[in-house]
C-alpha cells in the first residue's frame, strides 16, 4: 500500500508541525517541509510529491500563489495543490479565481476539513468534480488509482492491479497492496484501465495481462502468478488468444 506523499510549504513552524501531525495521523506521508518559494520549488522538483499544501502568504509575500503559478507552467509535472489561508485573506483569495484549479483550507482547520480539502484538490486536478467527495470513492489520475480507504486516500499504481472483479453494483480491485471495494462500475473500469495490458475475459472480470502465468484452454481458465484461477467466457476467449499472439 502506497501512502500519498505530501509536500508542505509553510513558514510558521508550529503550524507546519500541526499540519504534519494531522497528515500523518490521516495516513499520509509528509515528504518535505519548505518555508519559502525557492526551497518549495526545489523540493517539489526533487521529491515529486503527490500533493502540495501551501500557505498563500510566506513571510507576508504571496509566495504560495507564485508557487502555484510556477508549478502550473508545466502541466506534465503539476500536482494537486491545497492553499492554506487565513480567514481575513479568504475574500481576496476567493476573488482571485484560484479556487477553480486548486483547493483551499481555511485556518484554523481540523483533520476532517483537511481530508475534505485533499479529496477536493485531487478531484479538481483530475477534473472529475465530486469524484471522491460526493459520488464515488475512487478516481483515476494519470497512471494511478486513488482510492478512499479508512478515512484516508491511498494511491495504487495501475500496473499493480492484478485483476478487477464485479462486486454487486461496484467493483473489487485486487492489487498487490490488497483488495479494495471501489464505487465504480466494471464498464467504467474497463474504460479507464489502459487497454494495452488490461483485458476483459468474462462479464465479471478484467485482468492484467502481465499477471497471467498460464492459460488452460480446455478448462477455460487463466492462472495468475499467485495461483488464482479465473474463468474465461466464450465471448472473450478469441480476443484473449489474439492478444497472446501479439504478446508472444
Amino acid at each position: 500500500m502506497e501512502k500519498l506523499r505530501v509536500l508542505v510549504i509553510e513558514d510558521e513552524a508550529d503550524q507546519a508541525d500541526e499540519l504534519k501531525l494531522f497528515l500523518e495521523k490521516g495516513g499520509y506521508t509528509v515528504c518535505g517541509i519548505a518555508d519559502n518559494l525557492t526551497e518549495g520549488l526545489g523540493l517539489f522538483y526533487a521529491l515529486k510529491p503527490d500533493l502540495i499544501v501551501a500557505d498563500i502568504y510566506l513571510k507576508g509575500k504571496p509566495e504560495g500563489i507564485l508557487f502555484a503559478e510556477r508549478m502550473g507552467e508545466n502541466m506534465n509535472t503539476a500536482r494537486p495543490l491545497i492553499f492554506l489561508t487565513q480567514h481575513a485573506d479568504f475574500e481576496t483569495f476567493s476573488q482571485a479565481k484560484l479556487v477553480s484549479p486548486y483547493s483551499y483550507l481555511l485556518k484554523p482547520f481540523n483533520p476532517l476539513e483537511l481530508q475534505y480539502a485533499i479529496e477536493l484538490a485531487i478531484e479538481k486536478f483530475a477534473v472529475q468534480p465530486g469524484g471522491l467527495s460526493v459520488k464515488e470513492n475512487a478516481l483515476f489520475m494519470e497512471e494511478s488509482l486513488f482510492v478512499k480507504h479508512k478515512q484516508s486516500l491511498i494511491k495504487i499504481p495501475v500496473s499493480n492491479i492484478e485483476y478487477v472483479e464485479v462486486d454487486g453494483k461496484y467493483c473489487k480491485i485486487n492489487a498487490r497492496e490488497g483488495s479494495f471495494l471501489v464505487q465504480l462500475s466494471l464498464v467504467k473500469m474497463e474504460e479507464k484501465l489502459p487497454a494495452h495490458y488490461f483485458l476483459r475475459i468474462h462479464r465479471n472480470y478484467i485482468i492484467n495481462l502481465n499477471e497471467i502465468r498460464q492459460i488452460h484452454l480446455t478448462d477455460n481458465q487463466v492462472i495468475l502468478s499467485d495461483e488464482r484461477a479465473l474463468p474465461v467466457s466464450h465471448t472473450y476467449k478469441d480476443i484473449l488468444m489474439k492478444r497472446f499472439d501479439v504478446l508472444r
Binding site: 475574500e91 476567493s94 479556487v99 481540523n110 476532517l112 476539513e113 475534505y116 468534480p129 467527495s133 460526493v134
Partner: peptide, 17 residues
C-alpha cells in the same frame, strides 16, 4: 463583502467537519 461559492457536499460531511 461576503463572496459565496456554491459547492456540492454531502450535508452530513459538512456538519461532521
Amino acid at each position: 463583502q461576503v463572496h459565496l461559492v456554491r459547492e456540492s457536499i454531502v450535508a452530513g460531511r459538512l456538519i461532521g467537519q
